[in-house]
């Protein structure tokens, strides 16, 4: 069963003029697309996995540790694969020119990080919990707190951009971006609280595993 959202989801208004109207053409990944960019080990600095050490002092907000694994659909770890993250600060503000939300920037938080998975497909990032923020899609619309993820897998056919959400957030029920995902897939976008992954007295722990398609999986029905 497909866990992915459709392209056209009218409640998310921006899809109306951007979703293709023709059916997609289903093909096997080319042998080129069964390979992908190889990021050098030193492309990522260890410090880039900790978003809380960017400034001169600690950023505002609830400090958190997020751990998890990157797997493929066969359950195999995806090793040495680049994971990029970006997020709003604890007030729900991005340091981005098109963000017009009247919330304060945090001089000690850039909200950008990256990490390579290890030989078991594991990753760990340290950050602060992003704030929710209002958006113009519909009256009284607010995006639930989320962290953006950009994944490469080990093959360009596995490339995936997605968002991670937090357990128990009442805004999930009114978010058309989250609700665009078929019901059976929504749980897969929500992290679990995992206190022991946190730092005692300092940071809350969360766990979120991600799964990308197999690099050479053949199309359904072919």
């Amino acid at each position: 069963m497909d866990v992915h959202p459709p392209y056209l989801y009218p409640d998310y208004k921006s899809t109306r003029l951007r979703a293709p109207s023709e059916p997609l053409v289903r093909v096997a990944p080319s042998p080129l697309e069964a390979t992908g960019p190889v990021f050098p080990k030193h492309f990522v600095k260890d410090s880039e996995a900790d978003l809380t050490t960017w400034g001169r002092s600690a950023p505002l907000g609830e400090k958190m540790v997020l751990v998890g694994r990157l797997l493929d659909e066969d359950g195999r770890p995806v090793r040495r694969s680049l994971i990029e993250v970006w997020q709003a600060n604890a007030s729900g503000k991005y340091p981005h020119p098109v963000d017009d939300h009247e919330a304060p920037l945090d001089p000690n938080f850039l909200g950008k990080g990256q990490v390579l998975t290890d030989d078991e497909g594991r990753y760990r990032i340290v950050t602060v919990k992003p704030g929710a923020y209002p958006w113009q899609n519909h009256a009284f619309g607010w995006r639930p707190a989320h962290i953006h993820f950009s994944l490469f897998g080990n093959a360009y056919a596995q490339r995936l951009i997605t968002q991670m959400f937090f357990p128990g957030d009442p805004l999930l029920a009114i978010d058309p971006i989250f609700q665009s995902v078929p019901e059976a897939g929504r749980r897969l976008l929500i992290a679990d609280l995992d206190l022991e992954q946190g730092v005692e007295g300092v940071a809350l722990g969360y766990r979120w595993d991600m799964v990308v398609r197999g690099p050479r999986a053949t199309p359904m029905g072919v």
Partner: peptide
């Protein structure tokens, strides 16, 4: 077999992060 993680939009705020 684990289910694939659903896709979500890159959103409007990616530029500085992904460029």
């Amino acid at each position: 077999m684990p289910k694939p993680t659903p896709s979500q939009t890159v959103g409007p705020f990616f530029a500085r992060e992904l460029l």
